[in-house]
Amino acid sequence: MQVDDALLSRLEKLSFLKISEDKREEIIEQLSEIVGFVDNLSELDTEGVDATFAMSDAATPLREDTPDCNPEIHEEILKHAPKSADDFFIVPKIIE
């Protein structure tokens, strides 16, 4: 499986990362090496093996529908937020 610049661009978009020009080739090489390595799993016979893995067979715990909110949390987060005003998180405009 080869990683090329087109694939890197697609992955950058999904990751919201911009890899600088001078690092692109190196990253492509590294990712190629890694992907090439993990391809070794195709050597394993996994016929009939469960496609999902969980540590235990237990069911997810269910929580009672009882409100319990600690106001300190949002107060502290808003206080230290990069940009907040009137208890909103402020972000630059979204281009629709």
Partner: peptide, 13 residues
């Protein structure tokens, strides 16, 4: 919710 307000958006979770 995002509330658009000119150059910015206000996020309410």
């Amino acid at each position: 919710k995002n509330i658009h307000d000119g150059d910015i958006s206000k996020v309410d979770l």
